[in-house]
């Protein structure tokens, strides 16, 4: 067991104890905050596969977050008005079933990541950042001008979608659902990092020449990583939409891309629990400082600056020290 493993375990414990305490004392608001942390962390886990493992600085992950959100919004809004999405050539109806929505959200974001990645991964550095940003902004402006689903005002879904056997409107049940999904995503992410694919992707981040010389094409690795990354962030978008029972173009905006990136950087780029620590810290700051001042983001900015300048490994990196190579 490395030090990082203990820190991860402690963080997990804390993330379980806080909602447990909130639940036993009946503070539904804290439960919702914890759910939000889990969902945002999930978005960060997605980005961390591209950014941390693959070194792909995507400033456009809001695209996938938004697509996940709109997948939920579109399916649920048609279900609540009993108006099919299309009836020709085949009948497609809306749905209020979470598993179905998640599947559609992940497939749609994976497809979008495939298209965006195929084009943007031909560039690198600043160009990659700008192209991913441009794609997300395109979708942002598209949804603003898309009146069918609320346009600029967004769209409310009145009843949270359903999951077999659960009452998702009970905060603690939706919280557990979100936690389980985050847990599964972390498990997947940990396995991915240690698998042949993870080794090759990480090597491509460190030295692309090396990977080419052993006969592996970095482009393919990066594209697959980008697709997986987009699908996970898309799933987070669907859950986030369900948490708020509301979707809006803001999900696509560059602020969202920036926030997801901030979770990863605050927590620790490339660290398994980095996005979890980052999202938790972000929400905590928003909650604590947001009450003190409307300009709390100034403090967030200062903190981010401090992390980037003095603690490159983020919260996890500072606590756990240098990453131990997986042997």
């Amino acid at each position: 067991m490395t030090r990082e493993t203990y820190i991860n375990a402690a963080l997990s414990l804390l993330l379980v104890l806080v909602p447990f305490w909130a639940w036993s004392t009946g503070q539904a608001y804290i439960l919702t905050l914890c759910t939000k942390v889990a969902i945002l962390a999930l978005a960060g886990v997605g980005l961390n596969i591209a950014l941390g493992l693959g070194g792909l600085v995507s400033f456009g992950h809001a695209a996938f977050f938004g697509i996940g959100g709109y997948a939920m919004g579109i399916l649920a809004s048609h279900a609540q008005t009993f108006d099919p999405i299309m009836d020709w050539p085949i009948l497609i109806e809306g749905t209020k079933s979470m598993p179905m929505i998640w599947l559609v959200a992940m497939l749609a974001s994976a497809l979008a990541a495939l298209l965006i990645g195929a084009l943007s991964l031909r560039t690198s550095g600043v160009y990659f950042i700008m192209i991913t940003l441009a794609f997300a902004q395109m979708l942002y402006y598209f949804t603003i001008g898309w009146p069918a689903y609320g346009g600029e005002d967004g769209l409310s879904i009145y009843v949270r979608n359903s999951f077999p056997g659960l009452n998702t409107l009970v905060p603690v049940q939706f919280l557990i659902l979100s936690y389980v999904i985050l847990g599964l995503a972390l498990l997947f992410s940990a396995r991915l990092a240690r698998a042949p694919f993870g080794l090759a992707l990480s090597a491509a981040r460190q030295n692309a020449d090396r990977v080419e010389t052993v006969g592996i094409a970095p482009y393919r690795l990066r594209l697959v990583a980008f697709v997986i990354s987009g699908a996970i962030t898309g799933l987070a978008g669907a859950l986030f939409a369900d948490l708020n029972r509301f979707i809006s173009p803001t999900m696509f905006s560059w602020h969202t891309s920036g926030e997801i990136m901030i979770f990863v950087i605050l927590g620790g780029v490339g660290r398994l629990y980095g996005p979890v620590a980052g999202a938790a810290l972000f929400i905590l700051l928003e909650h604590l400082l947001g009450g003190v001042s409307d300009y709390w983001k100034i403090f967030l900015g200062a903190l981010l600056l401090a992390v980037v300048l003095f603690a490159r490994g983020g919260l996890i990196g500072t606590l756990a020290g240098r990453e131990v190579a997986h042997g």
Binding site: R191, R194, A195, P196, F197, I216, L221, H326, G327
Partner: peptide, 9 residues
């Protein structure tokens, strides 16, 4: 190389 689950090491 496209294997995602088994530990490579």
């Amino acid at each position: 190389v496209m294997r995602f689950f088994l530990p490579v090491m």
